Computed example of a mutant assay.
Amino acid sequence: MGEKFPEIEGGGSLILAWQVRNKKVLVVGGGEVAAGRILNLLNADAKVTLISPRDGLNPEVAHRIEQKQVEYHDRKFLPSDLDDPAIVMVLTAIDEPDDSTVIWKLCKEKRIAANIADVPPECDFYFGSVHRDGPLQIMVSTNGNGPKMANIVRRRIAATLPPNIGEAIAKVGALRRKLRAVAPGNEQGPKRMQWMSKVCVTWSLEDLCDMEERDMDELLQSYAPNQIPTFEQVRLGEQPGSWEFDGSFGWACVI
């Protein structure tokens, strides 16, 4: 047939952005690893329930408890802790391998996704090394082979990114929300996506960072005729039809 398709390369993970906002996640353990897990969950607006004896709590974990950022139970894990049907995820970070395996098996019986720290075979998912800049999140995963290597690779990637890319993406997100209000119908979906892509390719990173709400409103006037003015034309208030796209491209922003 002459067509070439990507070769299958097994052994990877399906990397997803798991939305846990307002969902209940159970964390067992209160050490340094648990502190990192809890921070990731709170950044994702999850409702965190923590089970761990108070003795030996990591200072950061103790702070989360003191600030009532988590629901805390000062004791060891009990099988009945998994009876709550609202729990969507369980994370363990304890030093007792046998106890961790028990929790893993209980989670499998109840079909609850679980991550047993430092035991890759007992994980439904892995935590990668994450770079965060506002709405931008970049995760590097080694599929459980080398967490430290993931951290090194993530730092190298982050060092190559423009310092204001997070702000630019936030502005693009605001523009997308405005566009959906202007053209809300499902039939408008393909056109919305195509038009937003053209904006991201045509406007430079600096343009996107400097874009204000009035610029967004002005730019949206070009949606109906499916045209893309330059940032300067928008600032000058030129009307659609008074300019032509010259084929030049600025910074490429892939959202």
Rank of each mutant, 00 (worst) to 15 (best):
V48K: 00
H63M: 15
K110N: 02
R177S: 14
V234L: 07
A113C: 13
V199T: 06
I38H: 03
D95R: 14
R75H: 05
A93K: 05
A46M: 04
A168Y: 05
L42C: 06
D45I: 10
A46G: 08
R75P: 01
G56S: 11
E9G: 11
A34P: 01
E60A: 13
R37Y: 10
G31H: 06
E96Y: 11
L26Q: 03
H131G: 01
T202S: 14
K76E: 13
G247N: 03
E206H: 12
T142I: 09
N40E: 13
K47A: 10
D133M: 09
D45P: 09
D84V: 03
V201I: 14
A62H: 10
R154A: 04
A46Q: 06
G144Y: 00
K171Y: 08
S222C: 08
E32L: 11
F231M: 03
C107N: 04
E218M: 15
R180M: 13
A168D: 08
G30E: 02
A86E: 13
M1K: 09
N43C: 09
I94F: 00
T92D: 03
V90R: 03
G36C: 06
P147M: 02
M216F: 00
E71N: 09
G134K: 01
Q19E: 14
E238H: 14
V201E: 14
E32H: 12
V48R: 03
A183R: 04
D133L: 05
C123V: 00
I169L: 13
P184Q: 08
I38Y: 02
D84W: 07
H73T: 07
M149C: 14
S222V: 05
I8L: 12
N58T: 05
F77H: 02
S248I: 09
C123D: 00
A168E: 10
V61D: 00
I116N: 04
S197H: 14
D74W: 03
I94Q: 01
G134R: 09
I152H: 15
K24V: 00
D133W: 05
Q67M: 13
N226L: 10
V90W: 08
R154G: 06
G30V: 03
I228D: 04
W18E: 12
